[in-house]
Design a protein around this nucleic acid. Sequence first.
DNA 1: CATGAATGAGCTTTCATTCAT
DNA 2: CATGAATGAAAGCTCATTCAT
Lengths: 205, 205, 205, 205
Amino acid sequence: MPKETFFNLPAEKRDLIIKVVTDEFAAFNYEQASVNRIVTNAGISKGSLYQYFEDKRDIYQYLIDLMTKEKVKYVSPVMQNPEDHDIFTLIRELYVSGLRFVLENPKFGAIGKRFMEIKNSVVYDEIMHGNRDAANQFFRILLEKAVDKGEIRSDLDIPMFAYMIGAMNTQMIEYFTDFETFEDDDKLLETVDIFIEFLKNGIEA
Amino acid sequence: MPKETFFNLPAEKRDLIIKVVTDEFAAFNYEQASVNRIVTNAGISKGSLYQYFEDKRDIYQYLIDLMTKEKVKYVSPVMQNPEDHDIFTLIRELYVSGLRFVLENPKFGAIGKRFMEIKNSVVYDEIMHGNRDAANQFFRILLEKAVDKGEIRSDLDIPMFAYMIGAMNTQMIEYFTDFETFEDDDKLLETVDIFIEFLKNGIEA
Amino acid sequence: MPKETFFNLPAEKRDLIIKVVTDEFAAFNYEQASVNRIVTNAGISKGSLYQYFEDKRDIYQYLIDLMTKEKVKYVSPVMQNPEDHDIFTLIRELYVSGLRFVLENPKFGAIGKRFMEIKNSVVYDEIMHGNRDAANQFFRILLEKAVDKGEIRSDLDIPMFAYMIGAMNTQMIEYFTDFETFEDDDKLLETVDIFIEFLKNGIEA
Amino acid sequence: MPKETFFNLPAEKRDLIIKVVTDEFAAFNYEQASVNRIVTNAGISKGSLYQYFEDKRDIYQYLIDLMTKEKVKYVSPVMQNPEDHDIFTLIRELYVSGLRFVLENPKFGAIGKRFMEIKNSVVYDEIMHGNRDAANQFFRILLEKAVDKGEIRSDLDIPMFAYMIGAMNTQMIEYFTDFETFEDDDKLLETVDIFIEFLKNGIEA
DNA sequence: CATGAATGAGCTTTCATTCAT
DNA sequence: CATGAATGAAAGCTCATTCAT
């Protein structure tokens, strides 16, 4: 968490710093990102930066938190009453929100990718502080309930499929970031629908 | 490629160096890996290491090559006549060989994971020398042929599914490396079969 | 060019660094000069030196610039209106200023000598940034004008004599640095006058 | 001096080594010259080279000696009876032989230039072992005798002119190596004659 | 709240020389 | 006489972090 001083800053300055930091961690992964470059680009002194943040990790942490907060905005209203919908609708909404998020926030997309690059590092664990497999948990519960409701087959390896369904979302995002691009939102929805249908065929009861 | 001197070394010493280097690149990614640590752990002088290898990248390259060579051994005989088998059999063999490889060579598994961490770096490209998405290509052709043979639906987004099928293999490997473990080979085969069935349901014609 | 930080330093510290650097490049040529030795002798940390200067070349560049600036102070007022004087007067002034400069700044003399040792290197060219034979050009024009004014013979190989007259100055400086010494300024002037007379006899019209 | 082993070598091998060493010290100065490169280019082992020569300096020494021996061959027969000729004839012969030597042995020319680059180093002194200013001595005696014979003015600063006349030869060689080139031997002689006349006008009695 | 100089362990790489075989 | 593996000090340079002002 940034120190109090950071939040006492005039919004303009704070926003500039956030912008610079965002650019830095979008262009470089955690290790390659440079505190020197940040202060230079933000036009502030090193000492100042260290009065706003504990250390490099803290800066990163803050950025990832910001990204997470932003991502939440994309979560479909459908997710507010998950029990009202079948699992395929829910997964569809998750995929769509995930894709829309990175398409509308390409820098966050890049940061997310860079973040994944350090998935095996201490820093990653620290930033996720134990939530490492929160997504896993979420999908696991989703699948378990779907089994109960008879929506999907009961003989699946739930933990594995939970992991895979989460991972597929990430992978699909990487695919569309790296190799393809959506012409418009309709195309995006269509693509997701095809994939959801694929999933459905694969696992439905 | 290591220099001649490396191959002239007594096997024992060479193996020790390989072991130390393997450990280093299993524990750290390319950037974090330290030549200093390697020479210390191998009990050799800095000068010696640089008489065996051109530079750090050369060491890494050699290790990745070694891994690739080892991995090839796991490729199923089925893959020698791919046209004799349907796509699901082929994908199954690929998944099985991939999983077996990392389960029987956990250090290589770690190295492979670390290697993926630098997927967006120059070093990665250099080591892959342009073959960056050879896997993608492979799966694309596989899918195209399967469409021709009427094994899978013709309305799929081939490039995307090619990417996803490759990625799923990697993800499954990561899952079993990080969270689960196979009791025995039967369990492994069973797991893969479930997944292949899932795939089959999803995309077969 | 040193970074801003260098010029922000207390004069005392800056002067100490300049002194140490001067000594280093007076005692060793560019390659043999050691950044390690500089920081040790200056009693500063490596990191600090690299906050003052870009790199080793930057340190050297700065020193050569300093020397050049200092040398300019020695240039005779006579040179401000070159057309008011005959060529022998001008050459005399140049020789005198060159000699006085190194005699009064022996360290710069040493640095100049060391600088000449790398005359065929890339670093030399970079530091001179293309002005490699500015001196040659200068003397060439001087000689051409003198031919026009009928001060010297018109059958001379101008480029060669231009080169030689410049070189003789350097050589004379080396001679008095290495083997001889002037008792006083009168002796210096006398010596130069003898040499100029020699030159005059040799080339005047 | 090379060790006995070097001279026991088959002439062919010895010559190859000499050629490689010549190329190395023509292309690089003493410091930059690399023992590694020499053994590689000569196709011999490091151990062997160190059985032929004491160390790097010894190799260099040997090469400079070889060059000196070769240079002697160019000395005009006129120099065998110096007292039969006036000083200007003698100097002329020296200049001509010096120029011819480097023109016909460009590699030695390069080596000579590289050798001059370390004029202020310990290695230079060691290689010249005290003969540092043998050339100076030579010209000094020449000038003294010429004064006695009434060939040149008696009021000259003999040591300085001795130094300068030697240096001019070197400088002229550098000029023709770096900037100009002789069409033929006639042109060379003509150029030297012009310079000698210049000298003559300058210092004759 | 701002500053920016100071730090120093760490990085990868080079090289002439030795010596056991 | 030939070999070539071993050496290790030294090179130039980077970087997140601290702290006195």
